[in-house]
């Protein structure tokens, strides 16, 4: 299983899955731990600031579960390496922090036909969706245009909430159960305690999956 992005979402997803006894995890992130990360990236400590996220996360997860194989890659996901990531993993979890990389993951998922679990957060708002190519809407169907982003900081509890949903979806997928968010996006607003699960229809005109 590959976790792309070991930030606010990825740290908690990784902890949940390592604790669940997932045999092999690959962590992919080219980032460096910053002081501002520590409110939500709970694999890291104050003394880790300045060190690579993927490497420190792998170390902490190995301490948590020494029987799991924890691999890491200090790289940014690109169109060149994303196919290899999917080919090596039974499931990919999108814990990224930008739409450019998310769309690269989505494109590869549709091309190869492997599922991935999307998650995102900002402030008190969160989103999660399980995407199964050729069966459900893809990320581009759900979010055709990505912009209007603000600099609202991410509340740690929001990231943990969304990441826990992603981990639940991952476990359900791995044991052969239908993920609860297959083709549906969870819209969570923790400031209002509003949670809505919205069906995302496939878009026949989608530039990514519309012709498949």
């Amino acid at each position: 299983m590959a976790i792309i992005g070991v930030g606010g979402l990825g740290c908690t997803v990784a902890k949940c899955l390592a604790g669940a006894g997932i045999g092999r995890l690959e962590l992919i992130d080219d980032g460096i731990i910053e002081l501002s990360n520590l409110n939500r990236q709970f694999l890291y400590r104050f003394n880790d600031v300045g060190f690579p996220k993927a490497e420190i996360a792998a170390k902490r997860l190995s301490e948590q579960n020494p029987f799991a194989e924890i691999a890491f890659s200090r790289t940014r996901i690109t169109e060149e390496n994303v196919i290899e990531t999917f080919a090596k993993s039974s499931l990919v979890i999108d814990c990224l922090d930008n739409f450019e990389s998310r769309y690269i993951v989505n494109l590869a998922a549709v091309a190869i036909g492997n599922p991935f679990i999307h998650g995102a957060c900002r402030g008190f708002e969160g989103r999660a969706m399980t995407i199964v190519p050729n069966k459900t809407a893809c990320l581009k169907c759900a979010i055709p245009y990505a912009s209007m982003e603000s600099n609202t900081p991410i509340i740690g509890s929001t990231a943990v909430f969304v990441a826990s949903i992603q981990a639940s979806e991952a476990v359900r997928t791995l044991v052969g159960l239908v993920p609860a968010l297959e083709g549906k996006m969870l819209f969570a607003d923790l400031s209002m305690m509003r949670f809505e699960t919205v069906s995302i229809p496939r878009d026949s005109e989608c530039r990514i999956c519309g012709r498949t």
Binding site: G5, G7, G8, L9, G10, C95, L96, D97, N98, F99, R102, G119, A120, C121, R122, E125, G126, R127, A142, I143, Y145, A146, S147, M148, E149, I154, A159, M185, F187, E196, T197, V198, S199, I200, P201, D203
Partner: peptide, 25 residues
Amino acid sequence: AIMLKHSATLRDGDIIQLSIPIGGG
């Protein structure tokens, strides 16, 4: 509880929820 395309026709009495994409993580 179903996402609409912007070309979709509305009906009297509809309740429409609006939000925007979120990309952080």
